[in-house]
């Protein structure tokens, strides 16, 4: 009994509709990552496209395989699988064999999301979990960095990419150290301009800091991310490294170097802010961001690895339920002591 033009329209609550839905939010992040993705294509040529494609294929394959048969279209349509694949791809070294990239995407979605119960139920960021798995499984391939593709043509592919499944990349090609690796093991400082515009060796998405910031500002304007998390992470890193470089400027990196090098911007803006695995409350977001920043600096400066963004975020992901529990806002009308 539906009439086209009824005299009286009856709705039940909620009457206030928000335009924001999960697929929309996911798509916004994809748009925000577009400049950095294009930059990675610019710097690394076809290899970047192949690696990103393999990661996305792996993630979407897992998404499809583990979804309920009747909900398959639904779980693919919200674009979260594609986003996970893209984020994972941006954290990988450009010379990685493609089958490893595919495996990383598959593991990220299956172990990082599907077995927890799907989107919204996972404890850890799926993209970072995929990367952690790859780093623990193939430590050599995951830390072999190739120089950026300055003189070569767009169609030049790094030979490591095309290794057959389950086979090694082989010891070929030129390798280059990342700025953080040089800082840690050789004490050479990379010029800040190179870091900001991305003329450095590193994983696909961590090279160009400014483009990542640009995407972050877009997300903030669209209200897709909690600005407290990236701001508190970056502030903590700035303060921490400022204090360290005051102690010994020769040994420790300058604050701006710390912010622009490595995967810090990528992690702080796009991964730590994952709404599923970060605290809900504003106070919790500050704690989460500060903790991540401190862990990043501790691992970078005092740990054995040159880069610690991934483990810092994963560790704080684990602490998120606890942070959420202790930062619940006071219920209106109740005293602080009657909790």
């Amino acid at each position: 009994m539906k009439r086209k033009d009824p005299d009286l329209l009856l709705f039940h609550a909620p009457l206030l509709r928000q335009g924001m839905t999960t697929p929309k939010a996911m798509r916004d992040v994809l748009y925000a990552l577009a400049p950095a993705t294009l930059a990675s294509l610019w710097f690394f040529g076809l290899s970047a496209a192949l690696i990103l494609g393999a990661c996305i294929a792996g993630a979407v394959a897992a998404e499809w395989l583990f979804a309920q048969r009747e909900a398959r279209g639904e779980s693919l349509r919200d674009a979260s699988g594609i986003l996970t694949g893209l984020l994972l791809g941006l954290t990988l070294p450009p010379g990685l064999p493609l089958w490893m990239a595919f495996l990383g995407g598959f593991v990220g979605i299956s172990l990082g999301k599907a077995i927890w119960g799907g989107l919204g139920h996972n404890l850890f960021n799926p993209a970072l979990l995929g990367r952690a798995f790859l780093l623990a499984t193939f430590p050599i391939a995951m830390t072999t960095w190739v120089p950026i593709n300055v003189d070569g043509g767009f169609l030049d592919v790094y030979p490591g990419n095309l290794a057959l499944p389950f086979m090694q990349a082989g010891a070929d090609g030129v390798t280059a150290a990342t700025p953080l690796g040089m800082m840690k093991f050789e004490h050479t400082v990379t010029p800040l301009a190179d870091l900001a515009f991305g003329k450095v060796s590193g994983s696909l998405g961590e090279t160009s800091g400014l483009l990542l910031l640009l995407g972050g500002i877009f997300l903030w304007l669209r209200r897709d991310l909690d600005w407290r998390i990236p701001v508190s992470i970056l502030l903590t890193v700035l303060v921490f490294s400022a204090a360290l470089s005051m102690v010994d400027a020769a040994r420790f990196p300058t604050p701006l170097f710390s912010v622009f090098s490595g995967g810090l911007l990528l992690g702080a803006i796009y991964m730590a802010t994952d709404p599923v695995t970060s605290p809900i409350t504003p106070k919790g977001a500050w704690i989460f961001g500060t903790g991540t920043g401190v862990l990043v600096m501790l691992i970078r400066v005092f740990g054995g690895l040159p880069e610690g963004v991934m483990y810092a975020i994963l560790l704080m992901n684990a602490a998120t339920p606890l942070i959420d529990r202790y930062t619940q806002p006071r219920v209106f009308g109740r005293g602080a002591e009657s909790k």
Partner: peptide
Amino acid sequence: LFGENFEPWVIMILPP
């Protein structure tokens, strides 16, 4: 089983 060029999955030998 796979010849010399096999890329070992280090994590599989470790406890995880």
